[in-house]
């Protein structure tokens, strides 16, 4: 109980929210990392997944990539990149590590979404004389959208988690509040940082959840 009240007083102390180590600045860094890396990952993964899904090639790659991504420890990749020459260029090692872990869920979900489009619909589109590009953009992409968005949601949550871990390897973001708390052996600060991170992650998840609910539904229900 004591820790709870200490945590509460940490969170309600105005000095902890301002300045370069303050919550607002760390939140800004975290948000920046998440958004920038989500955009980069989407730009890399989605075109590849859409084309592969349209052509029906590379399925094994798309599925195995997720499994590999799970087996490789995020923390290990963050540290490995930090020790390479890339690590000397500020945030770049963090950004690359984040992108590496956001790409697999995007790729896998978008690919599966494209392949699960009803083959009859695709054949009908071809029968109507649509070109490959028209079929991809006008038929398959809209029908695959729910699963693609699921992939984006998973990637976003993954990015928030990875960005938190990046603090262990010297990156910015809300994780720094936690690691600083550990270094000071200040349990209230550790818990306060953890609460902030958890709330942030749940907000991101909730936002995408709401977005998916509000998006117009087309095609078969996808879980």
């Amino acid at each position: 109980m004591n820790t709870l009240s200490d945590t509460w007083s940490w969170l309600t102390t105005a000095a902890h929210w301002s300045g370069p180590d303050g919550v607002w600045n760390r939140l800004g860094e975290h948000l920046f990392l998440t958004v920038v890396c989500l955009l980069i990952s989407c730009l890399i993964a989605l075109p590849v997944a859409l084309v592969l899904g349209h052509l029906g090639k590379g399925g094994a790659l798309a599925v195995n990539l997720s499994n590999i991504g799970r087996a490789v420890p995020t923390f290990a990749v963050l540290v490995l990149l930090l020790l390479t020459p890339i690590g000397t260029y500020g945030q770049w090692s963090t950004i690359i590590a984040l992108v590496l872990f956001a790409v697999p869920p995007l790729l896998t979900n978008a690919y599966v979404g494209m392949r699960e489009v009803d083959r009859d619909v695709v054949r009908a589109a071809r029968g109507m004389g649509m070109t490959g590009r028209q079929m991809l953009l006008g038929v398959e992409l809209p029908l695959a959208l729910p699963l693609i968005l699921t992939g984006v949601r998973i990637a976003a949550v993954q990015l928030v988690a990875t960005a938190t871990l990046a603090a262990l390897a010297g990156g910015g973001g809300l994780g720094r509040i936690i690691t600083a708390g550990f270094n000071l052996a200040a349990t209230p600060q550790v818990v306060a940082g953890a609460i902030l991170v958890a709330v942030f992650a749940l907000l991101v998840e909730g936002l995408f959840e709401a977005g998916q609910r509000l998006a117009p539904r087309r095609g078969p229900e996808t879980a």
Partner: peptide
């Protein structure tokens, strides 16, 4: 909840 936050 991210792992680092969970442990914390």
């Amino acid at each position: 909840i991210p792992s680092l936050a969970m442990f914390s």
